[in-house]
């Protein structure tokens, strides 16, 4: 589904290379965890895959279902099925969450040549998914992420994921800023979306999240490269020993 080869990325403003030859292959149904210390390039990877401005790909490629992902607009990527759950979801004053979901879903359906949902169909669809994530009607009426608590923001991200039904979900530090109860709600929401046709990349600093969203593969990202890959047990090893071993390897 996703094939990243030797990806080199630098920040446009600073002329500093962040990703230094990253390769990763993800198949449908798989859950990959990417772990790494601060500054290893985790967020850069997620932003580059989602198409944010400010990054320059100097080498390598990322193919999504055989197409050049990096050549697409952010909205085209979304319509093709790529979804990034932001570490820091953006607040958008004045745009109601419900309206936002409707516009986004219909824009994606339109781009894929599908029929737009009618308003009653859409309302039923969203309410059903919102209920599962403990998201109130009131929250849906409020502007996107404005005034949401940390937990509410992360739940809203998972709701968007549930509504938009992407085939590749990238979760960027979804556990940051969550207490254990909020984490469970979010993890349950994510797990409910696991399916043989959907892949996930779970980016995290801590192993804790992986107790709830159990990955098939774990990769260690250090200084812009994947330095080790393994099964879920690798996460536990990291929890015990920290990242120090890997930092040295690269240095």
């Amino acid at each position: 589904m996703l094939k990243i080869e030797n990806l080199h990325v630098k920040l446009e403003d600073e002329n500093r290379e962040i990703l230094k030859g990253l390769s990763l292959s993800v198949k449908p149904g798989e859950v990959h965890a990417i772990m790494g210390p601060n500054g290893s390039g985790k967020s850069t990877l997620s932003y580059v895959l989602a198409g944010r401005d400010g990054y320059e790909v100097t080498e390598g490629e990322a193919m999504f279902n055989g197409e050049d992902l990096l050549a697409m607009d952010p909205n085209t990527r979304a319509a093709k099925g790529v979804f990034l759950a932001f570490q820091y979801p953006i607040e958008i004053p004045g745009v109601a969450t419900m309206q936002f979901l409707k516009v986004a879903l219909n824009a994606q359906r339109k781009a894929r040549g599908e029929k737009e949902l009618s308003i009653p169909e859409f309302m039923r669809f969203v309410k059903d998914r919102a209920a599962k994530l403990n998201i109130s009607q009131d929250m849906l009426k409020r502007p996107v992420n404005v005034g949401f608590s940390g937990g509410e923001k992360k739940r809203a991200e998972v709701l968007q994921m549930a509504v938009l039904e992407p085939s590749l979900c990238i979760l960027d530090e979804t556990d940051s800023g969550l207490d254990i109860d909020a984490l469970k709600v979010v993890a349950d929401g994510v797990n409910a979306l696991r399916s043989p046709v959907r892949a996930m990349i779970v980016i995290t600093h801590y192993q804790r999240l992986l107790d709830y969203i159990v990955p098939d593969f774990v990769h260690v990202l250090s200084a812009g490269k994947i330095v080790k890959s393994g099964g879920k047990e690798l996460a536990h090893e990291l929890e015990k020993n920290g990242y120090a071993d890997y930092a040295e390897k690269v240095a």
């Binding site: 198409g51 909205n75 979304a78 936002f100 824009a107 781009a111």
Partner: peptide, 15 residues
């Protein structure tokens, strides 16, 4: 940032 967020959810730039 707002624009990117909306686009990352599939909404075309003009919209």
């Amino acid at each position: 940032d707002h624009l990117f967020y909306l686009r990352s959810r599939g909404i075309p730039e003009a919209e």
